[in-house]
Simulated assay, not measured.
Amino acid sequence: MRVLVTGAAGFIGYHLSERLLARGDEVFGFDNLNAYYDPRLKEARLARLTPHPNFRFARGSLEDRPALEAAFDASQPQRVVNLAAQPGVRYSLENPRAYIDSNIVGFLNVLEACRHRSMEHLVYASSSSVYGANRKLPFAVEDSVDHPTSLYAASKKANELMAHTYSHLFGLPTTGLRFFTVYGPWGRPDMAPFLFTKKILAGEPIDVFNHGRHTRDFTYIDDIVEGVVRTLDRVPGPDPHYDPRDPTPASSSAPYRVYNIGNHQPVELLRYIEVLEDCLGRKAEKRLLPMQPGDVPDTHADVQALSRDTGYLPSTPIEIGVRRFVDWYRAFYPA
């Protein structure tokens, strides 16, 4: 089928595009290649996609409505995966307007473009950050997510609400995926695995927040992509079990779903660093620091709903995933 992937030069978008192309789909990529992190990494990902005969690309931002509309018109997609966004919890404290522009205004433009073209299915990136101040573990899609601790998290919760409105008013099938700490080859330089690897190899100390005692549901990129593809292929309809007298955030009487997509195996950060040290063959000098504003102590994905509906089953342990990341890093950034 024809799929428009926004954020196609990003970490998840690149891997998803490769997977869709490998199974014979036509992929139209859309990305602004901004400088939130080194654009050369985004360009290198894109350079691996562009030779494929079924891949086309347009450069632009979600908040640039004419550019986005032109991409929709050029690609005539049947389905859309919206992964473009301004990411990052900590950066949202420094530059909040970037999150409103991309994640709110930009997402509205995506919804409008899908609505006016009777799109078969819109899959979009939400985030585990929406659980915010929740302390009940594991996080389940049925839980309340009304206490975000960063504007980034608030923007992702807003995306879910906006998507539901369009599903309800216009019958647009939408599925939101709450991603949990994705890592792997071609990963983002602003995330811990990348930052730690770079500094350990350079002999520099690493900043370990919350003294390394928080846990994260680290999820390998291949498992994430498998879940996204399975979700894309399953167009939601109204939930026949939805009860408006006892509503759940996970589904609706509209063609709307929200799922967690994670590993369901949280790992303490200190343990993750140990595995990274083993793969690198070097010990890290740790600078133990308190929790940063906007961060949450723990994440743990309850993925039962996604497994039930799509057969999703993450299978990559961190020992294997981290090794693959380190092998890629050493090849891409030779000493």
Rank of each mutant, 00 (worst) to 15 (best):
residue 185 P to D: 13
residue 307 S to P: 13
residue 70 A to D: 08
residue 292 Q to H: 10
residue 168 H to G: 11
residue 169 L to Y: 15
residue 21 L to V: 13
residue 49 L to V: 04
residue 325 F to L: 12
residue 111 L to E: 01
residue 248 T to K: 13
residue 208 V to S: 09
residue 35 A to C: 09
residue 240 P to R: 08
residue 20 L to C: 06
residue 184 G to R: 08
residue 110 V to C: 01
residue 258 V to E: 05
residue 165 T to L: 12
residue 31 D to N: 02
residue 33 L to C: 05
residue 297 P to F: 09
residue 49 L to M: 12
residue 90 R to Y: 15
residue 284 A to V: 07
residue 271 R to Y: 13
residue 41 L to W: 11
residue 155 S to P: 02
residue 197 T to P: 07
residue 217 D to W: 00
residue 335 A to I: 14
residue 30 F to G: 01
residue 205 P to Y: 10
residue 152 Y to Q: 01
residue 304 Q to V: 15
residue 32 N to P: 02
residue 321 G to S: 09
residue 85 A to P: 02
residue 198 K to V: 14
residue 289 L to T: 14
residue 331 A to P: 14
residue 314 P to Q: 01
residue 222 D to Q: 03
residue 226 E to L: 00
residue 145 V to G: 02
residue 101 D to I: 08
residue 158 A to S: 03
residue 101 D to P: 05
residue 177 L to E: 07
residue 205 P to K: 01
residue 234 R to C: 05
residue 3 V to S: 00
residue 121 H to N: 00
residue 28 F to N: 07
residue 67 A to H: 10
residue 309 D to E: 14
residue 247 P to S: 05
residue 320 I to K: 14
residue 305 A to I: 09
residue 23 R to D: 11
residue 113 A to Q: 05
residue 310 T to G: 11
residue 307 S to Q: 14
residue 253 S to D: 15
residue 255 P to K: 09
residue 20 L to M: 11
residue 49 L to E: 06
residue 14 Y to Q: 00
residue 68 L to E: 01
residue 275 V to C: 06
residue 299 T to W: 03
residue 103 N to T: 02
residue 285 E to P: 12
residue 157 K to H: 10
residue 22 A to M: 10
residue 148 P to H: 00
residue 239 D to W: 10
residue 8 A to M: 04
residue 108 L to K: 06
residue 86 Q to T: 07
residue 124 Y to G: 00
residue 119 M to V: 04
residue 124 Y to H: 00
residue 221 I to V: 10
residue 95 N to F: 15
residue 200 I to G: 03
residue 126 S to C: 02
residue 97 R to W: 13
residue 230 R to H: 01
residue 86 Q to R: 08
residue 220 Y to V: 02
residue 301 A to E: 04
residue 58 A to Q: 05
residue 45 R to E: 03
residue 47 A to G: 05
residue 295 D to S: 04
residue 219 T to V: 06
residue 50 T to E: 12
residue 13 G to I: 02
residue 152 Y to S: 01
residue 185 P to M: 13
residue 138 P to V: 00
residue 275 V to G: 06
residue 183 Y to V: 14
residue 180 F to N: 01
residue 32 N to R: 10
residue 19 R to E: 09
residue 125 A to K: 00
residue 249 P to S: 04
residue 46 L to A: 02
residue 74 A to D: 12
residue 103 N to H: 04
residue 166 Y to N: 04
residue 8 A to I: 08
residue 262 G to H: 05
residue 159 N to Q: 08
residue 64 D to N: 07
residue 225 V to H: 08
residue 115 R to A: 11
residue 233 D to V: 13
residue 123 V to M: 02
residue 29 G to T: 01
residue 173 P to R: 03
residue 328 W to N: 15
residue 291 M to N: 09
residue 130 V to K: 03
residue 53 P to G: 15
residue 171 G to P: 02
residue 35 A to M: 09
residue 143 D to R: 02
residue 198 K to P: 14
residue 26 E to K: 11
residue 271 R to L: 14
residue 125 A to E: 02
residue 128 S to C: 11
residue 249 P to D: 06
